[in-house]
Amino acid sequence: MALRMCPHGYRQPQPLISAVSFTKSASRSFRFSVRSSIPESGQSRKLVLEVKEKLAKDYRSLPLGKYGRDDEEMILWFLKDRRFSVDEAVGKLTKAIKWRQNFGMSELTEEKVKRVAETGKSYVHDSFDVNGRPVLLVVASNHFPGVSPAT
């Protein structure tokens, strides 16, 4: 028996189809048409800029730079994740940036990760997942919240 765990927030990719229509012609045959919800590259660039403007106007306290409110690559990722809905992307993106601030991701160093890894709480499995990525196994019995050499 195998147990496969996915990172929090992972969803199966959904088909990117926004509208499907069937029309019946006089000869009783059906015509099928599909309209994609993926915008063209020029449109996605406009959406990224729109998100950046909203973040600059409404969330000035969020940091700038990589993984900040002006990181266009990350903004595009959140737009794709929210099916190019600007409002939903802004909401999810602000939560993610605030989480990174509260968790202290900018202070995370290789040394801190090594110290936690030496506790035996987790280890990298010898095999890879179906997408060729390393698998991190967490041993729950070795985890004691609040007790860590990194803190």
Rank of each mutant, 00 (worst) to 15 (best):
Ala19Thr: 15
Ile17Met: 00
Glu118Pro: 04
Met1Gly: 15
Pro15Leu: 12
Val130Phe: 11
Trp77Gly: 01
Gly120Ile: 04
Gly91Gln: 06
Val86Ile: 05
Arg82His: 03
Val116Lys: 07
Val116Phe: 03
Asn142Tyr: 04
Ser18Asp: 03
Val139Asn: 13
Tyr10Leu: 08
Arg115Phe: 14
Ala117Cys: 09
Lys114Gly: 02
Phe144Asn: 08
Thr151Asn: 10
Pro13Ala: 03
Ser127Val: 03
Ala117Val: 00
Ala150Pro: 00
Val124Phe: 04
Ser29Asn: 09
Asp126Gly: 14
Pro63Tyr: 04
Ser44Ile: 01
Val48Met: 04
Phe78Leu: 03
Ala2Asp: 08
Val138Asn: 08
Met1Glu: 12
Glu107Trp: 14
Val124Ser: 06
Glu53Asn: 12
Ala117Trp: 03
Phe103Cys: 07
Val135Leu: 07
Ala19Glu: 15
Phe103Tyr: 11
Asp71Ser: 07
Ile17Gly: 03
Gly65Ser: 07
Val86Ala: 02
Asn131Val: 10
Asp126Lys: 14
Ser44His: 00
Lys66Trp: 08
Ser61Ile: 04
Ser36Met: 00
Met5Asn: 13
Asn142Asp: 10
Arg100Ala: 01
Val130Thr: 11
Leu64Val: 12
Asn102Phe: 06
Ser41Leu: 09
Asp58Leu: 07
Asp70Val: 06
Asn131Asp: 14
Tyr123Asp: 03
